[in-house]
């Protein structure tokens, strides 16, 4: 019987396991290492959640008000009353403002760097954007407080006067400082480099063949972007926005500097006030009693869950059109 390498045993292919399982030692070690890293991440995530829950439970049990819908924070009273309604409101709204401002601009910058700028300018521009992502958040906070706040009053007043019929933009106090809108704008500037840097990488990975295919059909440059570049990059841009949102949701110090921490749900975003999970934790931690600490940890747990939910939602968006992603 020649060629025993090729011939299959008589009882069919199932008798011999596929060749992949007889791996070399290096392959086995590497697979183990990779699997271990993956599992470690999951364990760490679960452990953080469990830790938060464990530390938060006593305070949650002591709470005399509904935790999710209360807009007060008196955890160290004899009858503790605290809830995250105002925190969730401020966090989500300031982050949404940040995304609404940062994503269009960031994608624009990325598109320019990846497909429009000349080959001399593009790398420089990309480098500067990357540098911007490395600026510490305290700097952005100080800048927002010292520069943006005094100089943006005119903008907020203009919005109130001309678009005041939109409840979000109305301002009845004629005071335009330390607002959620301002915090959102500073967050936008912090998020911008993240969104832009990742989008740029994604735009540059669009295969040249797709761009040429569109141009060869008589597309203008912009039409080629719409036909070939945007659809292909969509999952990546969504991921970029989500990473930006992650930064905005968790940003602490810049927001804590800017907002005048109040516990109210105020839809008039240009008025002073508002609060976020992270800023509240930073501001309250040192003065908190034992229930107070538990209450802050409980709010941290909610932030953790929100961040999770947002990322899951993004994955769903990306997965839904997986077949058309070009990844297969």
């Amino acid at each position: 019987m020649p060629s025993s390498l090729i011939e299959r045993p008589v009882d069919g292919p199932s008798a011999t396991p596929p060749a992949v399982t007889t791996t070399r030692r290096a392959d086995r070690n590497f697979a183990g290492l990779a699997r271990g890293s993956g599992i470690a991440v999951l364990i760490i995530m679960a452990a953080i959640g469990a830790f938060l829950l464990w530390k938060a439970l006593p305070a949650l049990q002591a709470n005399t008000a509904p935790f999710l819908t209360t807009s007060q924070w008196f955890p160290d009273d004899p009858a503790p009353r605290f809830g995250i309604a105002a925190l969730a409101f401020g966090t989500l709204l300031s982050s949404l403002i940040a995304l609404a401002v940062a994503v269009p601009i960031g994608v624009g910058v990325a598109l320019y760097t990846a497909h429009y700028a000349s080959r001399r300018i593009a790398p420089v521009l990309g480098y500067i954007v990357d540098l911007l992502a490395a600026v510490p958040s305290i700097i952005f906070g100080l800048w927002g407080l010292q520069v943006l706040m005094p100089n943006s009053k005119g903008l907020w007043r203009w919005l109130d006067q001309h678009l005041g019929f939109v409840p979000l933009l109305r301002n009845d106090l004629d005071s335009y400082t330390r607002s959620v809108a301002l915090a959102g704008t500073v967050l936008a500037i912090m998020v911008l480099p993240t969104v832009s840097a990742i989008s740029r990488e994604v735009f540059m990975q669009v295969p040249k063949g797709h761009l040429e295919a569109a141009l060869a059909l008589g597309a203008t440059r912009w039409e080629a972007m719409r036909t070939a570049v945007f659809p292909f990059s969509r999952p990546g841009v969504v991921s970029a926005a989500m990473l930006g949102l992650g930064r905005a949701l968790g940003e602490t110090i810049a927001v804590a500097l800017i907002l005048s921490a109040t516990f109210a749900i105020n839809w008039q975003l240009t008025e002073p006030g508002g609060n976020t999970f992270a800023a509240n934790i930073a501001l309250k931690w040192n003065e908190a009693g034992s229930v107070g600490l538990g209450a802050l940890i409980a709010s941290g747990l909610v932030l953790y869950i929100i961040t999770f939910a947002v990322n899951m939602a993004a994955r769903v968006v990306v997965e839904r059109r997986r077949e058309f992603s070009g990844a297969n």
Binding site: P207, G209, H210, E212, A213, A214, A216, L217, T227, A228, P231, F232, R234, R321, F324, S325, G326, A327
Partner: peptide, 13 residues
């Protein structure tokens, strides 16, 4: 019109 060396249908379409 042009047809390229590597088939390049738009993957998102």
């Amino acid at each position: 019109g042009m047809v390229f060396q590597k088939p390049n249908p738009f993957p998102t379409m």
